[in-house]
Each structure stands twice: as structure tokens, then as C-alpha cells.
Design a binder for these strands. Structure first.
Length: 581
RNA sequence: CGGGGUGUAGCGCAGCCCGGUAGCGCGCCUGGUUUGGGACCAGGAUGUCGUAGGUUCGAAUCCUAUCACCCCGACCA
């Protein structure tokens, strides 16, 4: 591409409403423009990267045996009413009416349509397994769109749907997609991890998220560097930090701790480690009777070690809390404990409460907790001696870096990630949409469905979040808008430079290298700054100075300085660097 | 949805408190001088001041409504 025949507009300053670095850089580099909240135009420069991402996905999906089709953006409400998602999806589902007043939706995903296709088109086991995919525009009316293209309302997604005749086949389809995803993100040059995930409300069986590692990611991941264990922090299992309960060494006593309502303050006042304290968290549930009336309020006391944090998702899995819980009000706390928050503990509550101890707390000895009396804490508290051993012990805390890995093979580390792909097996649609086929015996049986998504436009942002510096974007080769930029110094006024640059450009294009020739005749500083902002990974500078000796300069976007290379060798050098991994 | 903030040229911002009909930097256009890291000089173009009402002789400025955009969002005892 000759730049004079392309379109480029860079900005020195990012628009004030850009909230994350990837969005700022893409806007400055002229790759995207915002049209409305969470809705972006992909400008020519940005679209080139999008197309490269799509092509890699397409090649690997095809190689994995998936078949491409294209389903509509606008879908009739009837299909969504059939699965119940018309009612369940909520405000994120954009609903529209046509001129006849019929209800339609703008698709946030395509399970309904593909299931409709599957039940109409697939009748025989001979047609299975099959995996359909498309790369299509989606719309989810996010409550609060942000993070640029990473959480837009309109976005592009690759979604694939597999249909199998039995569990074994479904597992194979799942693994084929898992491996395809590994190849896709590897080819894109991204650092990522496959993370075991909660199946969430789609309700499947096996599920992994593919997370691009970046400090600015929305999700925290817990993983074990010495094994393949990786899980969302919300999901990661926290083991008890001590396997058995220690023997009591101290007598229990009440210490004045005036004004010290936080574990940190109490530990500091008493001169003990924060790990010796126990934090009390009070929840309330409102159970219903058979008629659905609230029968009263039940109060729960959850005990967590002072330096740990409650994991509400885990708490929600405790019997009695499954139906939903809330944090107790201050009035409820005073009523049940006899004192306000800050001095609460499991001993001597005013009214009975349900006590749940975290696994680690259950094994603590000589610990410190609130005395249920304003301005007092208890020290040297021991289970079994001072109070009954906890009736309920559960994993209710968030894991932290340094915890033992649940697989017993090391220590957990925590990093942030951006979810760019998700694979699910065993979706419920075969039942609700009657996806039946005739098996070898001629009997009808339900198919097994899996679904597999990749956020195409989100990948664009995630790649930048992972790969940028103070000057701009640093694209991995495979998804850069251009692989190589030729920067001639004095293109408009130096015949020798112009000829050399033109010839080099033709040579690179001739061998299939995606090169751009900056033929604007701009000053070097302007050219360099623009291309460093855009993040083209390889740059060749053609100048009078080097040309006298038959040389040009090569510089990778990550290099601090250029290397002199004979003009006759630069083509081969670039070809060597751009060999596909 | 609740709370807060901001809307002035393509981008970044000032002007608003204290009303007098809009300005700065970058970018853009023309000419000239420059030319290996965002050049310089001279000249120039671009705004229904988010929108709609109101107050006033007069509104970017004050008032009301409305829209858009941005930020924050339980608790962590």
C-alpha cells in the first residue's frame, strides 16, 4: 500500500473520553472512531487488523473441521421466546419492531438460530458431528459500556456451535476447539492462558475461558506457574492453610481495643500478626414459607481470617445461602450481637446466629476476634475449649497469591487477564429446542451441543493492552495493520531515495510482504512518530546517507536503535523475520 | 437504575463566578524558507458555544427542561 492511496489521520492528543490505553492509542492512531457509547467505526487502519484477526480465526476453525455460515443480525422474537431467553435476557437484549409491529431482536449471540437450523437440517446420525461457525456483528446493550472496544455494545464475535451424537463425540469436539483456540492465540502472538471457568448461566458442563494476560484486564486469574492449573480468582479453590488445628497455648482473655474496629487496627494495637485475627461478616437471609411469604430474618456469621476476603460466589453455594443473601443491616447486627459492627465475634452472641467458618479459620488456634462488646476484643480464643467447633466449615474466601495450588503442585500466582475466548460443552438447548436425530438403531435421540466464542474486536484491544509502550502500539506481526513500513527520507525531493524506496516497495509486495510505503515526503520525525504510534512492527528507513554506501536501516518497533543493512539484503532479512510461526 | 461531573472549531482546552455577540495550542489551507526525530516565517479557513424554552435592551455566561458523554456504585465489621 502506498500511503498516498490510503487514509491516515493520527492525533497528538487522545480524545478526553477514552478511558483505557488501548482505546486512546487506537483513536490516536486513527484505527477507530467513536460514534456513540460503546459503538465504534473501524477506520481503514483498524479494519486491516480486524481482517487479519478474522482470517487467522477462519483458517484455524476450518482446519479444525468447522464449517462457516452466516446468520442474521436481526432475529425474530419467536425463537427467543421458545428458549425463554426473550424474558430472561433482560435489558441487554436490544428489541426492535418491524413496520408490522412484529418483535425482533438484534442478536447478542446465535444459539437460537443455529439450534433452529440444526433441528430442521440434521435428521440422521450420518450428519453428525458437525460444527457451524460465523463471524458476525453482535449487540449487547451493556449497562455501562467502557474500556473502548473491549466492552462495546456493538462488537464482532466468532461464534461456533458443535452438534454431536454422544458425550464422547462432544468431548472430542470440545477438545478440537480448545486446541484450535490455542493455535489461534499463539499465531496472533499473544500471551494467554486457558482458565477453567464457571459455566455461568448458560449452564454447560465443561468450560474454559481464554484469557489474554494484561495488567489492565477486568478479570483476576489464579494460576500455578509450575502446573497447568488456572482458574478465575472467583472460582479458584482455597485450601486450608494449616492442615490441622493447633493446640491452645494461651488462656482466653478480653482486651480493651477502644475505637479499633478493623482487624488491621486491632492487630497493630495488640502487636500481633494480622493472620492471628478473625474477621466477622454478617449476612442475612429471608427464607420463604410454602406460600412464598417471608417468615423472618435469619442471621449468618461468616468467619474469615483477618487478612482474607470473602468470596461471595462461594458463600452463595452454602446450604441456606443458595437462595440469595444480603449483608445484615446495622440494626440487625445490634439486635443479634448486642454491639455494633467492629467488635463482633462468635462467642456470646445475644441471639443465636448461624456460624460458618472458613477452612483456614476452622484450624486456627489462639486467635483474636470481637468480644461482642463495644471497644473489646477476645484474645487466645480456641475452638473446642472456648466455644464449640464450628458446625459448618466451608471454602468461602478469595484465594490470594502465595496460596497452595488446589492441585497440590505448587503455589498460586494471581494476574489479570482479558477474556477473549470461551468454550462451553453440553448446552441445554437440545432439550428446550428438541434437537433430535435418528441414531443407528433408527431411534430418535437428542444431540449434544457445544458453543465456542471469540471476541474479535475485543482481541484488538486486548492485543494492545498487552503490547504497547509510551510511544504507541506494538503489534505482533500477525495482526499488525501492515507488517513493514518503508520510511524514505526526502521522498518528494531526492530522486535516488525515491527510486530506492519505490523499488524496495515493489520487491516486498512482489514476495507477498504486507508493506506500506510512506510516500508523503514528510519530515523524518513526523513519519517515525506516526508509525511508532500505529505500531507497525518492522521499519525500513531509506535515506540519502546510507544509500551512498548501498545501505538502508532496519528497526523493529521494540528495538532502541536501527541496524544498517545492505539494500540488496533487506528483502531477504524481512522475509526471514516474517516467516509464519 | 442511583450519585457526581462535563458538553465551546477535527483533537486538547480557556472564557461562565462578575451577561455586551468567542479565543488559545495542535491539526487543516496558501506562499516561502527548511529537511535524519513531531521545523520556521507570513497569510488564511473552520463554531447554529449539545438541544429547546425562559429572564434580559442584550445570553457561551443567569434560570428551567431535555439529550449526550465520562466517572463512581453493595459490603469487606
Amino acid at each position: 500500500m502506498r500511503l498516498s492511496k490510503f487514509f491516515l489521520s493520527t492525533l497528538r492528543e487522545a480524545p478526553a473520553d477514552a478511558d483505557v490505553v488501548s482505546q486512546q492509542l487506537m483513536m490516536r492512531a486513527g484505527m477507530i472512531k467513536k460514534l456513540a457509547a460503546g459503538i465504534y467505526t473501524y477506520m481503514p487502519m483498524g479494519l486491516r487488523s480486524i481482517r487479519k484477526i478474522e482470517n487467522i480465526i477462519r483458517e484455524e476453525m476450518n482446519a479444525a473441521g468447522a464449517v462457516e455460515l452466516l446468520m442474521p443480525v436481526i432475529q425474530p422474537a419467536e425463537l427467543w421466546q421458545e428458549t425463554g431467553r426473550w424474558d430472561e435476557y433482560g435489558a441487554e437484549l436490544l428489541r426492535i419492531k418491524d413496520r408490522h409491529g412484529r418483535d425482533f431482536i438484534v442478536q447478542p449471540t446465535s444459539e437460537e438460530v443455529i439450534a433452529d437450523i440444526a433441528r430442521n437440517e440434521i435428521n440422521s446420525h450420518k450428519q453428525l458431528p458437525v460444527n457451524f461457525y460465523h463471524i458476525q456483528t453482535k449487540f449487547r446493550d451493556e449497562r455501562r459500556p467502557r474500556f473502548g472496544v473491549m466492552r462495546g455494545r456493538e462488537f464482532t464475535m466468532k461464534d461456533a456451535y458443535s452438534f454431536d451424537k454422544d458425550e464422547a463425540g462432544a468431548l472430542q469436539s470440545y477438545q478440537a476447539m480448545y486446541q484450535a483456540y490455542e493455535r489461534i492465540f499463539t499465531r496472533m502472538g499473544l500471551v494467554f492462558r486457558a482458565v477453567r471457568a464457571d459455566t455461568g448461566n448458560i449452564g454447560g458442563k465443561a468450560s474454559h475461558e481464554f484469557q489474554v494476560i494484561a495488567d489492565t484486564g477486568e478479570d483476576a486469574l489464579a494460576y500455578c506457574p509450575t502446573s497447568d492449573y488456572a482458574a478465575n480468582v472467583e472460582m479458584a479453590e482455597a485450601l486450608a492453610l494449616t492442615s490441622t488445628r493447633g493446640q491452645p497455648n494461651q488462656a482466653m482473655s478480653k482486651s480493651p481495643t477502644p475505637g479499633k474496629a478493623k482487624c488491621e487496627d486491632v492487630a497493630a494495637l495488640l502487636g500481633i500478626a494480622l493472620q492471628r485475627t478473625v474477621k466477622s461478616i454478617v449476612l442475612a437471609t429471608e427464607p420463604l414459607d410454602k406460600e412464598g411469604n417471608v417468615t423472618g430474618v435469619q442471621i449468618w456469621l461468616l468467619l474469615i481470617r483477618g487478612d482474607h476476603e470473602l468470596n461471595e460466589i462461594k458463600a452463595g453455594k452454602i446450604d441456606g445461602l443458595k437462595a440469595g443473601f444480603r449483608f445484615a443491616t446495622e440494626a440487625e447486627i445490634v439486635e443479634h450481637f448486642g454491639c455494633p459492627p467492629g467488635y463482633l465475634g462468635p462467642l456470646g452472641t445475644k441471639k443465636p446466629v448461624y456460624i460458618v467458618a472458613d477452612r483456614t479459620v476452622a484450624n486456627m488456634s489462639d486467635f483474636v476476634c470481637g468480644a461482642n462488646e463495644t471497644d473489646f476484643h477476645l484474645t487466645g480464643v480456641n475452638w473446642g475449649r472456648d466455644l464449640p467447633v464450628p458446625a459448618q466449615v466451608a471454602d468461602i474466601r478469595k484465594v490470594v497469591a502465595g496460596d497452595p495450588s488446589p492441585d497440590g503442585k505448587g503455589v498460586l500466582a494471581v494476574q489479570r487477564g482479558i477474556e477473549v475466548g470461551h468454550v462451553f460443552a453440553g448446552l441445554p438447548y437440545p432439550e428446550s429446542m428438541k434437537l433430535m436425530f435418528a441414531n443407528e438403531a433408527g431411534q430418535n435421540q437428542p444431540m449434544i451441543m457445544g458453543c465456542y466464542g471469540i471476541g474479535v474486536t475485543r482481541l484488538l484491544g486486548a492485543a494492545i493492552e498487552q503490547n504497547h509502550d509510551a510511544k504507541g502500539i506494538i503489534w505482533p506481526d500477525a495482526i499488525a495493520p501492515f507488517s513493514v513500513v518503508i520510511c524514505p527520507l526526502g521522498y518528494d525531493r531526492n530522486e535516488g531515495v525515491k527510486n530506492a524506496a519505490d523499488n524496495l516497495y515493489m520487491e516486498l509486495i512482489g514476495v507477498g510482504i504486507d508493506a506500506v510505503l510512506d510516500d508523503r515526503g514528510e519530515r523524518p520525525g513526523v513519519m517515525f512518530a506516526d508509525w511508532e504510534l500505529i505500531g507497525v512492527p518492522h521499519r525500513v528507513t531509506v535515506g540519502d546517507r546510507g544509500l551512498k554506501d548501498g545501505n538502508v536501516e532496519y528497526q523493529h518497533r521494540r528495538d532502541d536503535k536501527a541496524t544498517v543493512v545492505p539494500l540488496t539484503e533487506i528483502g531477504a532479512l524481512l522475509r526471514g523475520k516474517l516467516v509464519r510461526a
